[in-house]
Simulated assay, not measured.
Amino acid sequence: MSNVVLLSTRRLPPTYFDQVREDLGDQNITIDVVGWVAPSAWVADKVNTFTLIGPGRMPAEPAPEPEPAESTDEAPDAVIAPEAVADPEAVVADEAKIAPAAAEVAAAGAAAASTPAAAAKPRPTGAKRVVKAVEWRARKARKVAGRMLPKAIKTSAPVKFLSGNRANKDLGKTYWERVLSRRDVLTTIDQADVVIALDAGAIWAGWNLGQRKAGTPVVLGLPAARRELDMMKAPTT
């Protein structure tokens, strides 16, 4: 049975490890993960170990679902208490109280409807209208320029490439330094048949491990790992 170590700086869902086994062509493969970010949910049933070397904490184990309680008792028939039934005389008295109040509300509404509405503010005309229009267009232009131009610059392809490349480079160095500082992580890597860097943030660590461990394949991505595992399983001539 082969043992692979996954180097990752991204948040991985539990279902991802099922995909790893499928892509590598071995459902019995042992998976150890060295992650900068904790997985999105409980993965103890999916991998051999998951070592978190970045910020945060591992997800808690989900609580078992309670078994539904079986009940054989039938619900008793509904019983209406005598005091819950309204007395006909009380209903008549309540209706007599409601009628005057409704009449008062109707009279108030009629009075409000007869009150003349406030006169609308006159719209500017002539030169004042031209000045107001120019001021409104100037305010709108300033808002559009202040809102759209920075966003267009930030989302342009060159800026996104440079910022993403710089972020991956900084994360890659930090990730590699943390790997070197953890004896348990180095021990796990020493026991691997193949080490797989899954993303751009883990490439730097993978390259350095490849220089230090000449006898262990260190590859980028699952397709390259599949080729290495297939060559290991191929009979030698």
Rank of each mutant, 00 (worst) to 15 (best):
A127R: 05
G215F: 05
F161W: 15
T49F: 15
R139L: 11
A81P: 03
P88I: 04
A145R: 15
P13E: 10
W176Q: 10
V43A: 08
E65Q: 12
A200K: 15
M232A: 12
P59M: 07
D32C: 03
A110H: 06
N28G: 12
N48F: 10
A63H: 01
E135H: 06
D170G: 09
T187R: 14
A102H: 05
P13H: 02
I31Y: 07
D87K: 09
W207P: 01
A81T: 08
D18C: 02
R147S: 13
I29Q: 08
K169R: 15
Y175I: 01
R147Y: 11
A111D: 00
I53N: 00
P68I: 05
A75C: 01
Q191S: 11
K169P: 00
R178C: 01
K173G: 14
I53G: 02
K169Y: 13
K121Y: 06
E83I: 10
Q19T: 09
V34Y: 01
V144S: 15
P55G: 13
K173C: 07
F50H: 03
V195K: 02
R21I: 09
R182Q: 13
I153R: 11
A202F: 07
E89K: 14
E61M: 11
L222C: 08
E83R: 06
P82C: 03
D73F: 06
A78C: 02
G109D: 08
W36V: 00
E74C: 11
D193M: 04
R182D: 08
R166K: 13
G146E: 12
